[in-house]
């Protein structure tokens, strides 16, 4: 593109090329946007992820249920006195991901543990009431969680996540 004739008006010519190139770049970027954005969840999926309500009344002490919210299994455990006791008495310094039990349950509802039942290692679903800590055991790679859903042993780096939820009454929660 650089020949003798370009020496006459170098700046004007360069400006034109730069402007055209810039416009092409802007156009390309604007085109890529919808092509990528379409991969995000569609409106129906987002609408289906609205909060759900769960009735806790039928869950007896020592039992737990699994409900689904946004495609994720949520464990709701009605913990026994022993489990609560264990969860509260652990020395925080001994935990890989230190977090007091009070930060993982709602105040005044110590007996209810609500966690997302997805192992923080690689996404398998831990089995409740198994393992050495009265909590959860992940069969995939042997991570063990305690009765507060905190990681105690194994490759998982973090505690089981607590989903956003709130008590609507003593026997009803809303997840999400």
């Amino acid at each position: 593109m650089t020949t003798a004739s370009s020496a006459d008006h170098p700046t004007r010519r360069d400006f034109l090329f730069v402007a055209t190139g810039a416009a092409a770049a802007v156009g390309a970027a604007a085109t890529v946007w919808p092509l990528v954005a379409q991969m995000n969840p569609d409106a129906a999926t987002i609408a289906a992820g609205a909060p759900i309500q769960v009735d806790l009344a039928p869950i007896a002490e020592g039992q737990d249920i699994k409900v689904f919210w946004r495609g994720k299994p949520i464990y709701i455990s009605h913990r026994t006195k022993k489990q609560i006791q264990e969860a509260q008495s652990v020395a925080l310094s001994s935990l890989p991901d230190p977090q007091p039990d009070s930060a993982r349950v709602k105040a005044g509802h110590d007996q209810w543990l609500v966690v997302i039942g997805i192992c923080t290692h690689l996404g398998c679903i831990p089995i409740a009431h198994e393992g050495n800590y009265d909590g959860f055991f992940c069969p995939c790679h042997g991570s063990q969680y305690d009765s507060s859903g905190r990681i105690r042993q194994g490759p998982a780096p973090a505690n089981l996540a607590v989903p956003p939820y709130a008590f609507l009454s003593d026997t009803k929660i809303q997840i999400g």
């Binding site: 593109m1 034109l16 090329f17 416009a23």
Partner: peptide, 20 residues
């Protein structure tokens, strides 16, 4: 709006290039 501006730019760029 974008395409019309772009086509005009392309037209003048093309003319400059072909001037050689």
């Amino acid at each position: 709006f974008f395409l019309v501006v772009f086509a005009i730019l392309m037209y003048f760029t093309k003319r400059k290039v072909w001037a050689d």
